[in-house]
């Protein structure tokens, strides 16, 4: 299994929106390398013909009727907002466009 480099940690931090500081990158890179080295054992079973388990219970088709339930009031919805304006969540300028 490949080890994890500082650059890789920096890339992952960007994906995860974590503004890691320089020394943190080094620190984490070392620790993550250890952890990944240890947990990589699971790939022993990668070739085994075993179905993966994503859910611990054999449940299917849990659905609800298409019936309206009460929403929060806008005041409740916005109660935790760091900033608000015109009954909307006020956020800093958005750069990317998807």
């Amino acid at each position: 299994m490949p080890g994890i480099t500082r650059e890789e940690v920096a890339h992952l931090a960007r994906l995860a929106r974590l503004e890691l500081k320089g020394e943190e990158l080094d620190h984490f890179a070392g620790q993550l390398d250890d952890i990944i080295g240890a947990v990589a054992r699971v790939s022993e079973v990668a070739d085994q013909d075993v179905p993966p388990t994503s859910h611990p219970l054999p449940l299917t088709n849990v659905m609800r009727a298409d019936e309206v339930r009460p929403s929060l009031t806008p005041e409740q919805a916005l109660s935790g907002a760091p900033a608000q304006e015109q009954q909307r969540f006020k956020v800093p300028q958005i750069l990317g466009e998807d």
Partner: peptide, 26 residues
């Protein structure tokens, strides 16, 4: 968060997350 981001990223998913789910079955 970083470990999980790594395990789910393309190229590693099968070896890590996928295998872990198989272990779960076992």
């Amino acid at each position: 968060i970083i470990l999980g981001t790594y395990a789910l990223s393309s190229g590693y998913y099968d070896a890590y997350y996928g295998s872990a789910q198989k272990v779960r079955t076992l």
